[in-house]
Write a protein that binds this DNA or RNA. Structure first.
Lengths: 328, 328
DNA sequence: CTGAAAGCGCTTACAG
DNA sequence: CTGAAAGCGCTTACAG
C-alpha cells in the first residue's frame, strides 16, 4: 500500500509525468527554470499527495542546515526567554531556523553531549548561552569548522566570539551606585569564580578601591534563590549596609530571608540586584537592579555567529526601584 | 587540501585499508561483525582524522532521528524548565535526544512553522508544551505519521494524546480549599477561554455550585503578571474575599497591585495561586498554591509519545504558604 | 569477518 | 524549459 509511505518527489514525478529534477526545481522555487504550466501541475500533484519535504535529505546534499543551534542551560534566573526571543527574531531575519539544545543545570555531561549533537548536524552556527565551557568543550568547538559564539559570557579573549554585558563594568556601576548613595560597607553575594563571576568580582573590587573603600569578603554562591536565602546570615554578620546580589534570584532569596529575620528592606539593608528580569517587580519592595539587555545580547550573537558586524558588549542600565536606601 | 574538508568514513576506509562497510560497522558498534584488530585500527585512524559522524546522513538512511521535538512557547509563567527537565531525563533513558523548537508567545505563525520543522525532520515524536493548536496545526499533525502528544494541555478528547493536570479538578480543589476556610465570595482571575482556561472555569463553577454558592464573574486575562496587576481593581470591585489566580504570575501581579493599594494580604484578600513554581516563594507573603507536578507531566509525556504506558492526568497538590486567611 | 553494491530523498551541474 | 546522471555520507542485506 502506497498509502502508508510518506510521498517523495519520486512519487510526484511519477504521477505528474515530469522528472524528479523538474519536480525538485519547482518545489525548490528555482524560478525561471520551469514553465508556469509545469509549476501548477506539479504543485497540484504535490498537494494531492500530501507531500512534505524531507529536510534531512536536503541538508545532506546541501551540506548545511540553515539552522543555528542554541545550547542553553537551566540557569536559576529566567533571563533565557529574552535571549531566546532576540536570537529567534534575528535568526529568522537571516533565514535561519533555531533549534535549542538543553544542557541541564551546569551539567558537564549534558553540555558536552549537546555540543556534539550540534556538531554532528551541520548547523550554520552554534550559540552557547550562559555556558561555562570546560577544556574539552572548547577543544571540540575549536576543532570543528562550525562558527560558534558565547552568549552572555565573555571568556576574556577576543579570539573567541562572544556577546555579553561587560561584567566588570556592570559590577563597577552597581558598586558605584551604592557608594554614591552613601554606602561604604558593601558586599557582593551569591557569585561564583568562573568567567562571569570573576569579572564581576573584579568590577566590585575596582570600584571599592577607586573610592578608597575596603572590599568585604565576597560571599560565594551559585546565582540561585537558595544561595540568597542561605547567605543572608553571613551578610548580616559582615555588618554591611548594602549588598550587590549576583542575580535577581539571589536578591529575591536575600530579601525573603531578611524579612523573615525581621529586617526591613531597604531601611536595614539595601539590595542591588543584577539582571533586571521581571523578578525584580514581583518582590516587595521591588528590586533596584543593573538591568541587562538580554534581547539584544541574543540578537547580536546571531549577527556574530553569522559573520556579520556585531557589538561585543551590550550596555547595561540601572533601573531604580525600591530596594536601595540612601545611607546617612 | 584535505585539511579543510570534514573527514568521512571514506577517508577512514582509504587510510585504514578497509572498506567503508567495515568502517561503518565498527563505528556503529555492530559488535561481532568485525575483529578486535580491525576495530582498534579503524578507531585509531578515525581519531587521527578527527572524524565525527554526520548524523544527517545517518538519519536519512535510517529514516528516523532518535530525537523528540519539543515545541514550546514562552509562557508568562516559567514552569517550562521543570517540564523540560522531565522530558530530557525520560527521553535520554529511552535513548532519545530532544531538540526544542520555540514557538514565541502564542504566536500562531511561529507555532505552525515549528510544527512543520519537526515534521520535516523525521523525528521520533512531537511534544507540544502549553500549545493551543489551531485547526490547521491539528490537521497537519493528524496528517503526519509521526506520533504527537500535548503536554500540560488536554484537548478534551482521549483521541489525542495528552498529559496534563486535570484542570477541572485542579480548579475545583482550589475553590473548595477556599470554601473550607470560610470564603463564600470567591473569584477566578486572569484566565482565558481556551482548553485549559475553560476547564478551570468549569471546575471553579462546579465547586461553587456544589456548595450552593454563586460564582462571581470570571475575570479574563492571559496568565501574565500584567494581567494580575490590571485586574486587581476589578477584583476589588467584586467585593470578594478570596481569588484564585490563573497562574503564579497573575497571583504575583495581583499581590503587588493590592499592596500598592494599601491592602494587606491575606487579611484583606486571600490569594490562591495555580502552578506552584518558585515564584510563590519569592513574594511576600509567599503564595499558597495548587502545585502542579511539571516534571512528571514532562516525563510521562515522553512515555506517551513513545507508545509506552503513561498517565493521562498527573495529580496536583495543595501547598500551603501564607496568602490565604481563614474567613470568619 | 569483510567487501561490493544498492539505496535513503534530495539537488545540481551538464547537455540538450 | 527539461531530463539523465552523479553524488551528499552513511547503512545494510547479500554473498563470500
Amino acid at each position: 500500500m502506497e498509502v502508508v509511505m510518506k510521498p517523495t518527489i519520486k512519487d510526484i514525478a511519477a504521477k505528474s509525468g515530469f522528472s524528479i529534477a523538474t519536480v525538485s526545481r519547482v518545489l525548490g522555487n528555482k524560478t525561471g527554470s520551469y514553465s508556469e504550466k509545469t509549476q501548477i501541475k506539479i504543485l497540484k500533484v504535490a498537494k494531492e499527495l500530501g507531500y512534505r519535504k524531507n529536510s534531512v535529505a536536503v541538508d545532506l546534499v546541501k551540506k548545511r542546515s540553515d539552522v543555528i543551534a542554541l545550547i542553553i542551560n537551566a540557569t536559576p534566573t529566567n533571563f533565557s526567554t529574552q535571549i531566546i526571543d532576540g536570537i529567534q527574531q534575528r535568526a529568522s531575519e537571516l533565514g535561519q531556523g533555531v533549534i535549542i539544545l538543553y544542557a541541564g543545570n551546569r551539567d558537564n555531561g549534558l553540555q558536552h553531549k549537546a555540543i556534539i549533537t550540534a556538531l554532528e548536524r551541520s548547523v550554520t552556527g552554534i550559540l552557547l548561552a550562559a555556558i561555562e565551557p570546560d577544556e574539552q568543550d572548547l577543544a571540540l568547538l575549536k576543532a570543528s569548522r562550525i562558527p560558534y559564539c558565547f552568549v552572555s559570557l565573555y571568556l576574556g579573549t577576543r579570539d573567541i566570539l562572544a556577546v555579553s554585558s561587560d561584567n566588570r563594568d556592570l559590577a563597577y556601576q552597581a558598586t558605584q551606585y551604592l557608594i554614591d548613595r552613601g554606602h561604604t560597607r558593601i558586599s557582593l553575594v551569591g557569585i561564583d569564580g568562573y568567567h562571569t563571576g570573576s569579572q564581576r568580582q573584579a568590577g566590585y573590587r575596582d570600584a571599592m578601591a577607586a573610592n578608597q573603600l575596603t572590599a568585604a569578603d565576597i560571599l560565594s554562591g551559585d546565582y540561585s534563590y537558595e544561595s540568597g536565602v542561605k547567605l543572608l546570615q553571613q551578610v548580616h554578620d559582615q555588618g554591611v549596609t548594602a549588598v550587590i546580589a549576583a542575580s535577581d534570584m539571589v536578591a529575591a532569596g536575600l530579601l525573603t530571608a531578611a524579612q523573615q529575620q525581621g529586617l526591613t528592606i531597604p531601611r536595614d539593608l539595601s539590595i542591588m540586584s543584577i539582571d533586571g528580569t521581571i523578578i525584580c517587580q514581583i518582590t516587595t519592595p521591588a528590586l533596584t537592579s543593573v538591568t541587562q539587555d538580554f534581547y539584544r545580547i541574543g540578537s547580536q550573537s546571531v549577527n556574530k555567529v553569522m559573520g556579520q558586524p556585531a557589538e561585543d558588549f551590550i550596555p547595561v542600565v540601572i533601573t531604580e526601584r525600591a530596594s536601595v536606601a540612601v545611607q546617612k
